[in-house]
C-alpha cells in the first residue's frame, strides 16, 4: 500500500494533542516533561475540561509549562504551587486545579506547602516529576537524588551521611488523611505512558468529584543532568530509580473504602 493512501485523515490513529500549543518545547532531547505535558493536554481535552482547568506552573524546568498546554495558568514562586492551588481551588470551586512541579520544587523548598495542601485535602491534582535532580539550575542534588548519584553538588555521589536519604514523596503524602489517590508512574515505554495517562485522568476526575488531593508522581529522566543519552537514561532509571521508587498505586481511597 502506498504511503499517500495510508496518510489520510480517516486513517489517523494518533494525533498531536489538540491542547498542546505549537510552540517548540524548550526541554532537552528525550526529556520526560514533554511526554507528561502531552498526557496532561490529552486528559484535559478528553475530559472536556479546557474551560475549567487551571494549571499552576513551578519554578524549574517546567516553569514554561504555560507556554505549551492551552489552558489558563498561574506561574508560582519556587515550591509555592500547592499554596496557590489551594486558593485558586477554594475561591473557584467550579474549576479543576492542578499543579505541575518537579521534585526539587515540590519536595525541598515546597515541602510545607505540599504537606499542608495534602493534609487539608484540597481538591487539587499535584503532578510531580521525580527525576532526582535540579535540571534547570544545572544538575544539582535534589531531595530525590539516589544514594551514590553524581550531581553538580554531589560530584562524588550522594552520601547519606552528608546529604541524607532520598525522599519517597509519594509514600510521605500517602499517609496524610487528605489525599485520596497517590500513585507513582513512569513514561518511558508505551505501557508506562498508558498507565500514567490513566493515573492522571483518574486524578483529574477525583478533583472534579471533590474527593480530595490526588498526587501523581512520575519517575522521569533528565538526560542532560544525568549526563547520559535519553535511551541510557531510561535504562538507568529502570535499573536504579525503580528500586527506590517502585511504580504503582500507593493509595486509592476508591479501593479501600
Amino acid at each position: 500500500m502506498k504511503r499517500e493512501d495510508i496518510i489520510k485523515p480517516e486513517n489517523k490513529v494518533y494525533s498531536r494533542p489538540r491542547l498542546l500549543d505549537d510552540n517548540i518545547m524548550h526541554y532537552c532531547p528525550g526529556c520526560s516533561h514533554g511526554v507528561v505535558h502531552k498526557i496532561v493536554a490529552e486528559v484535559i481535552d478528553e475530559l472536556g475540561l479546557e474551560e475549567h482547568a487551571i494549571g499552576i506552573a513551578p519554578v524549574g524546568c517546567a516553569v514554561f509549562a504555560y507556554n505549551y498546554i492551552d489552558c489558563d495558568w498561574v506561574e508560582a514562586a519556587h515550591g509555592r504551587a500547592p499554596a496557590l492551588a489551594t486558593a485558586v481551588s477554594r475561591l473557584n470551586p467550579d474549576k479543576v486545579v492542578f499543579t505541575y512541579q518537579g521534585d526539587g520544587d515540590l519536595a525541598a523548598i515546597g515541602t510545607a506547602e505540599t504537606i499542608h495542601a495534602c493534609t487539608r485535602g484540597e481538591n487539587i491534582v499535584i503532578i510531580m516529576i521525580n527525576n532526582g535532580i535540579y535540571g534547570m539550575t544545572g544538575g544539582q542534588m535534589s531531595p530525590c537524588t539516589l544514594e551514590g548519584a553524581k550531581t553538580a553538588t554531589t560530584p562524588y555521589g550522594r552520601r547519606v551521611d552528608l546529604n541524607g536519604f532520598p525522599l519517597r514523596v509519594g509514600n510521605v503524602v500517602s499517609i496524610l488523611d487528605g489525599t485520596c489517590y497517590v500513585t507513582r508512574q513512569a513514561v518511558h515505554t508505551t505501557a508506562a505512558v498508558r498507565k500514567a495517562k490513566a493515573a492522571i485522568r483518574k486524578a483529574f476526575l477525583n478533583a472534579r468529584a471533590k474527593k480530595g488531593t490526588s498526587f501523581v508522581e512520575i519517575v522521569g529522566t533528565c538526560s542532560s543532568g544525568w549526563k547520559m543519552s535519553p535511551e541510557k537514561s531510561n535504562k538507568w532509571m529502570e535499573e536504579n530509580m525503580f528500586a527506590h521508587y517502585p511504580l504503582g498505586d500507593i493509595k486509592d481511597t476508591d479501593k479501600t473504602e
Binding site: N11, K12, Y14, R16, Y27, C31, V35, K38, H188, T190
Partner: peptide
C-alpha cells in the same frame, strides 16, 4: 504497523500515526 508506540513516547509530540 501503525502501533503508535513511537508517537506515545515522543517527548516533543512531533509524530502522528496512520493505520489501514
Amino acid at each position: 504497523i501503525g502501533c503508535a508506540a513511537c508517537a506515545m513516547v515522543c517527548p516533543d509530540a512531533c509524530i502522528e500515526v496512520y493505520k489501514v
